[in-house]
């Protein structure tokens, strides 16, 4: 019995942490992003502007995906970049991904010099597992909820069968 209680408490803790992780990672918003992308307008409002890097990328990345747009991105004047950042600033405060980028200015300048010259997003800090931890907790949350739902459904089924007999 005590084992069951401990399991229950751990599961509850995981689910609560997962709920927090969902909002921290903007999990739901980013999951349904694709269903909101009917036109450019929607996309910009729906997420890119809040999403950080992406928003800037796509304004400088037109329809086709050749490689030219990277050059443009690289040449984006600082003033434009600043304006775009300011535009997004307020909403982005709680976003861990954005925070991590803002912490390291290199990332905001864009590390990529085009194809074939792959470099780290953020030089100087190549392993940073905070978000990975949150993704794990969200993942574990889904697992825990499934396990309990499964148990519940089985229990209901068993009760139903007993009544029928």
């Amino acid at each position: 019995m005590s084992k069951k209680i401990i399991n229950g408490i751990i599961s509850l803790a995981i689910v609560i942490a997962a709920l927090y992780g969902l909002s921290r990672l903007r999990f739901i918003e980013r999951s349904i992003w694709i269903f909101k992308t009917n036109d450019m307008q929607n996309t910009r409002r729906g997420g890119f502007e809040r999403g950080g890097r992406e928003g800037r990328d796509f304004r400088t990345r037109p329809q086709d995906f050749g490689g030219r747009e990277r050059q443009n991105f690289e040449n984006l004047p600082d003033s434009v970049r600043q304006r775009l950042l300011a535009e997004r600033g307020a909403r982005v405060e709680n976003d861990s991904l954005r925070e991590s980028r803002a912490l390291n200015d290199t990332a905001e300048r864009g590390d990529f010099r085009g194809r074939g010259e792959g470099r780290d997003f953020r030089r100087g800090q190549s392993v940073r597992l905070v978000n990975v931890g949150w993704f794990f907790i969200v993942f574990a949350g889904f697992t825990v909820i499934t396990i309990y739902l499964d148990m519940l459904l089985k229990l209901i089924k068993r009760k139903k069968n007993q009544k029928e007999c």
């Binding site: 997420g47 995906f65 889904f142």
Partner: peptide
């Protein structure tokens, strides 16, 4: 468009992670 694929990449990976769970 690059934009379409980018959004697709994000959404599909998030949804799939939930499905993995």
């Amino acid at each position: 468009s690059g934009m379409f694929w980018r959004v697709m990449h994000t959404s599909s990976s998030f949804i799939t992670l939930a499905l993995f769970g």
